[in-house]
Simulated scan of single mutants.
Amino acid sequence: MLTLYKIDTCDTCRKARRALDEKGLAYTTHDLRKDGLSASLLEHILEQVPLSKAINKRSKTWRELSTEQKESLDATSARRLLLEHPTLLKRPLLELDGQTLLVGYQEGDYDDLAP
């Protein structure tokens, strides 16, 4: 089963959902804003995605962080910020088999997925 970690207001997440729907793939969704981001889910994600790739530095939330927060970012403070602000997590994240996560979405990224 596929799991799509998303935020409803994210345009890229909507494109990813549309691509999955067009391929007829069954999937569940987890809205990072509504359903939350637990410490265990974050660690599960970070086991598969490097922290540097997991943080969305193009997000409004990132831009609103203080310069000090951005400059002093380390593994511990990044985890704390991600738990406090789940919208800092790059998205969408598509979990394929409980072990593989695809980060982000561009047209054609899901073409090789079988229904």
Rank of each mutant, 00 (worst) to 15 (best):
L20A: 08
D112H: 15
L96K: 11
K70D: 00
T29P: 03
K57H: 07
K90G: 00
A114S: 13
V49A: 03
T28D: 12
K6R: 11
S40N: 11
R91T: 03
E47K: 15
K15H: 15
E71C: 06
E84G: 01
L41N: 08
M1P: 14
Q99F: 01
K15S: 15
E22H: 14
R33Y: 04
D21C: 07
H44T: 13
M1S: 14
T29I: 12
A39P: 12
L25A: 13
R17N: 04
R63F: 02
I55T: 10
A54V: 08
E95T: 04
S66N: 08
Q69K: 09
D11R: 07
L89A: 01
C10S: 15
L113S: 07
L41Y: 11
A78H: 09
G24Q: 10
Q106V: 03
L89S: 01
L102Y: 05
P92S: 05
D97K: 05
L82I: 07
Y27G: 10
H30W: 15
D31T: 11
Q69F: 03
L2G: 06
S59W: 02
Q106E: 13
G98E: 05
A19K: 08
Q106F: 03
D74A: 09
D97T: 08
K57E: 04
E43L: 12
S38P: 10
L73G: 05
R18V: 11
A26M: 13
D35F: 13
S77K: 10
I7V: 15
K53T: 08
S59V: 02
V103H: 00
Q106A: 07
L32Y: 03
K15M: 14
R14L: 13
P50W: 07
G36Q: 14
S52C: 00
G36L: 12
R91I: 02
L42I: 11
G104Y: 07
L113Y: 11
T12E: 06
D11Y: 05
R33G: 00
P115R: 09
L88C: 02
T100M: 04
D21N: 15
W62H: 06
S77E: 04
D74S: 09
L113R: 06
